[in-house]
Design a protein around this nucleic acid. Structure first.
Lengths: 226, 226
DNA sequence: GATCGTCTCCCCCGTACGGGGGGAGACCGG
DNA sequence: CCGGTCTCCCCCCGTACGGGGGAGACGATC
């Protein structure tokens, strides 16, 4: 079927790794009818973004530091009227969390090492409502593309990590408006140590600077006003 | 936020209820740099006391038997040279009299149910003079009257000098994690212009950097997560 | 034992940031 | 008319910030 849609297909990317977001964006934006309307570094930031951007599709990582894809999916479907289609993104086809996400109401499932054309295909199918890669289809996908890749998607296979305790401590103090030096004093460690933690936090949250990290902390419910 | 104290901050309490005065005194005197220099039971007694004690701040109830907070504020500002900062104290955030008092020249308002730390914070902010909240936050407060109770920090202070429209624009973009350059591009102005606005915002909010400004924006309800 | 992650601390380095000034044109209300 | 506010632009300058490395110590895990 040929679609001469004037309205581009809008999509929101949610992944804690900037690299993955950049990759997905590059692949998807190459399509004239697909428009990436937003990015988020954590699942908990999704709801406000969905409300504001109202994307057709949300491509969401399963594992993320503050709120994982399952929780986020559940939250979106529970609180947003006329919710977008949700595609779970994962590195491993046997990721048990994927099934949990699908039970939570996700519409599809996508392997990070899928080829660009496959990614585009999956997004289009899900957007059209024919929810596709379900567990059954997952096996097919895994079977067809699971063996060899060595493709450029190797970058996606990175270890993701949640914030460590210390990093949470630091982030919490960041949300109180403290400078690195002040945080160091509070935690009774060196300023260089704090800098290290801050860098890790920024990387994990996909934030460019401490301000963005604090915003993510608020948007995710890591801290709340009042 | 970190406060570098200079001279002790003197304050005069004006409330017809001894209990409230005692509560405020207890909270404020717990601070080494804050000194309650006097008390009054009615607005009518304020002027001579202010003249004699010359407090930095007057915390004044809105409603009092003989002379209410509005009248008293007006009287002080009209007759006392180099008048103190005036904080209106009230029970309800949607108290119409509060707005009247603010129009009369009060420097901020404070909810009686605010937590101690927030009361102290509010007093300090007002005393420093360079602290201000947003009309939008106040409106939102009035709208959400009766819903929640915490987060009085944001509601604690309102000032005559609010953010200008342009400053609100800039702050809003700051809360989305944009850099000065990006904000400039968004608003189609020069980067130097944005820097000016940011500096004004920081000064008005009593923030040291953009991160603190964003925090204040969240804490005040200027923006809210989800 | 070996490996891994965390926490700690250190180096260099570029730059966005924020403070300190000043100033000009437009508008509005007194 | 004038003063005040808002808007915008420019300068210099110091520094906190963040990226890029690396490394030692400790505990848990295998």
């Amino acid at each position: 079927m040929i679609y001469a849609d004037r309205m581009p297909l809008t999509i929101l990317l949610v992944d804690d790794e900037p690299l993955v977001r950049a990759g997905l964006r590059a692949v998807l934006e190459a399509q004239p009818d697909i428009e990436v309307v937003g990015e988020a570094a954590d699942g908990a930031a999704v709801i406000p973004l969905v409300r504001r951007l109202r994307p057709d599709v949300v491509a969401m990582d399963v594992r993320m530091p503050l709120m994982d894809g399952i929780e986020a999916t559940r939250a979106v479907l529970r609180t947003v009227p006329d919710p977008p289609k949700i595609i779970m993104v994962t590195t491993f086809e046997n990721d048990e969390n994927v099934y949990g996400a699908l039970r939570a109401g996700a519409d599809g499932f996508l392997l990070k090492r899928a080829r660009p054309a496959e990614i585009v295909h999956a997004v289009r199918l899900v957007a059209e409502g024919d929810s596709l890669p379900f567990p059954a289809a997952v096996r097919r996908l895994a079977a067809s593309y699971g063996e060899n890749d060595g493709n450029a998607e190797a970058r996606a296979v990175l270890s993701r990590a949640a914030l460590t305790r210390r990093e949470e401590d630091v982030l919490r103090l960041m949300t109180r408006g403290l400078s690195n030096a002040e945080i160091a004093a509070h935690l009774v460690v060196g300023a260089e140590t704090v800098k290290s933690h801050v860098s890790s936090i920024l990387a994990k949250l996909g934030a460019r600077d401490r301000t963005q990290a604090v915003i993510t902390a608020y948007e995710s419910g890591f801290v709340s006003p009042g």
